[in-house]
Amino acid sequence: MRAFDKVLAARDANKLTSIDYINNMFSDSFVELHGDRNFADDKAVVGGIGILNGMPVTVIGLEKGRNTRERMERNFGMAHPEGYRKALRLMKQAEKFHRPVLCFVDTSGAYCGIGAEERGQGHAIATNLMEMMALKTPILSIFIGEGGSGGALALAVADEVWMLEDSVYSVISPEGCASILWKDSTKAPEAAEKLKMTAQDLFDLGVIERVLRQPKAEDRKMFESLKLLICRTFEKNLAVDVDELANLRYERFRKLGNIF
C-alpha cells in the first residue's frame, strides 16, 4: 500500500518539525511572537518574524514537538482556536508591513475537545479561510508532514501550496474514513489509497504547485536551495499588486474540482 506508507512516513516521530525548519532557515534572525491577544498562547502553533536571505518574513508553523515532553506541551500539533487566531494575528501584522507569510503545516487536525468547541473552533478556522483569501501580502504554505483537514487548511489558503514528497493532506484521516465507511479502522491503508492524499496525488489533482524533496537535518545545501526557492516565489508575488494577488489566490481555489 503505497499511500499508507506515505501516511506513516508523514507521521514519523523523527521527522523534522516546523521548529527545525525555522531554526535551519532563519537561524538567529527568528523572533518568536506569542499569543492571540484574546485568550492564550497556543503552543501547537509557533510563529514569529525573521530574515530569509535578507528578506523580512513572517513565519508560522503547526508544531508537533520533537520529544515526548515537547509533544505533550504542544498538544501533538493539534491547535485550539487560539492557535488559529494567533496565526491570523501574525498574518494581519505581516499584511500591515507588507511582509510575506510562510506557513509550515504539520498536524493531524484541529483539536477536538470541549474547550476547543467552547471557544469556537469552527469559527476560528472559518475566519482564517476568509481573511487569508483576501490577505494583501504573499502567502506560501509548505506541508512538512501531516495535513489533517480543516486544521491544516486554516494555514494553507495560500498563493502556492508545496508539499514534501513524504507528506500527506486529506479531508479526513484514513482511519476515520475507514471506520465511517467500513466500520473498520484497520482498513485505513485501503482508505488512504482511495482518498488520494499523497503529495503526488494532490499534484496530479492540481491542488498543489510543487512536490519537494525531503531535506535531512544536516543537509545545509538542501535548506539553502529551499530558501532560495521560497524567496524567489515571494519576490515574484511581492511584485504583484496586492488586490490582484488576492484575486489570483481566489481564482486558484475557485477552479479546484470544477469539472461541471
Partner: peptide, 13 residues
C-alpha cells in the same frame, strides 16, 4: 477527498 476540503476555502473566498 481533498477537493471537498477545497470547497471550504472557495466558499469562504
Amino acid at each position: 477527498g481533498i477537493l471537498s476540503l477545497m470547497q471550504m476555502a472557495k466558499t469562504s473566498g
